[in-house]
Amino acid sequence: MVSATIRRIVSPCWRPSEGEISSRHGDASGRANGLLWYKDSGRHANGEFSMAVIQANNLLEDQSQLESGPLSLTEGNPQGTFVGIYDGHGGPEAARFVNDRLFNNIKKFTSENNGMSADVINKAFLATEEEFLSLVEKLWLHKPPIASVGSCCLIGIICSGELYIANAGDSRAVLGRLDEAMKEIKAIQLSVEHNASHASVREELHSLHPNDPQIVVMKHQVWRVKGLIQISRSIGDAYLKKAEFNKAPLLAKFRLSEPFDQPILKAEPAILVQKLCPQDQFLILASDGLWEQMSNQEAVDIVQSCPRNVGF
């Protein structure tokens, strides 16, 4: 698995590790080279991995995470691999919070439901959202900008031969699959970006807010939700989830002229579940910073060209 950027930037350095692993960018197990942070490639429960991130802003707002081992809090429940890409905006708080809480909530609900499922993932996203909004409620009068902090969230889970992809925001998961007839690796996109630039997202917003003709507007040649933000799903962004956070002392540029009685943005992820097959070679999970620079197939070709063991 590859996250955040591609191995064209990170030289392949295979160092297999044993047992459970927990890798989060920014910890001591990774390496820094200027604005690049990367984790040397190693082993997880289902294959090899590498992680990398390039800092684009003065303050690093993003997080990435890989956990390999038990996916629940109780014995006898499944082992697997969890990967998270958390693309923060407005500040680092939401992405850091998700990095700390989402996987723990996945394990909690997996234990309570005696196994992994799409419902478990959905519950974990919503629980993480509620926890963060509770934090905002405690802090926002003294720290108003916390109400405008949010994070896109993309996760991938491999468990018992099943692949789970869950996305809220505009990150993307792409599968590299062997086309046996053509003898080449094809890119298969597994997630859809929740970005107002897509007509389907604008249609969804209009259907959810039929009485609001300004739910999506063109601003500076970009489609934006309420003229403020491009994404339609996230964790955080409390100022567009609850009206009580969309008022002073929040900065005026974030405040809407009219009150709202239902969340404008959603935290529910879009979830895909499918069985892995022998032709599935690798996954790429990355934020929009990567996909704005290259196509799915270009990214797959780069990963395929790097030395590695084949398959998950």
Rank of each mutant, 00 (worst) to 15 (best):
D280C: 08
L265M: 09
A173C: 11
G42N: 01
E129V: 08
A52K: 02
L265P: 00
W14C: 02
T5K: 13
F312I: 05
E61K: 05
P16A: 00
E131Q: 15
E67A: 12
T5Y: 11
A243T: 10
I302Y: 04
P259G: 07
Q279E: 12
S111G: 13
S111D: 12
I229R: 03
L178R: 08
G42P: 01
S160D: 14
A56N: 15
V303M: 06
Y239M: 09
I85L: 03
C13W: 13
I165T: 13
G34V: 06
D237H: 06
I85E: 00
G150I: 05
E193N: 08
V310Q: 07
L290R: 01
G115W: 04
S171W: 01
E131Y: 09
N33G: 09
I264E: 02
D119C: 06
F245M: 04
V192E: 14
N57L: 15
D288G: 06
A243V: 05
Q221V: 10
G88R: 02
L190T: 05
A196N: 05
H142A: 14
E48Y: 03
R202W: 06
D27W: 09
Q221F: 10
S207M: 12
S17K: 14
K226S: 01
I235R: 03
A147G: 04
S171E: 07
T110C: 13
D288Q: 06
G227T: 06
R255E: 00
S72R: 01
M51C: 00
P145A: 02
I215T: 00
H209R: 04
E298R: 04
V174G: 01
Q230E: 08
D40S: 11
S305C: 05
G169N: 07
A286Q: 03
S68Q: 08
L73N: 11
Q281R: 10
Q279T: 08
R43T: 11
Q221N: 15
S117C: 06
T5C: 12
A147F: 03
L139G: 11
R7Y: 02
Q230P: 00
N113R: 15
L276K: 03
R101H: 15
S197Y: 12
A28G: 13
D119W: 08
K242Q: 06
K247C: 13
D179P: 05
T128P: 05
F282Q: 02
F260T: 08
R177T: 10
V10R: 07
G150H: 06
K107W: 00
I121N: 11
D100A: 12
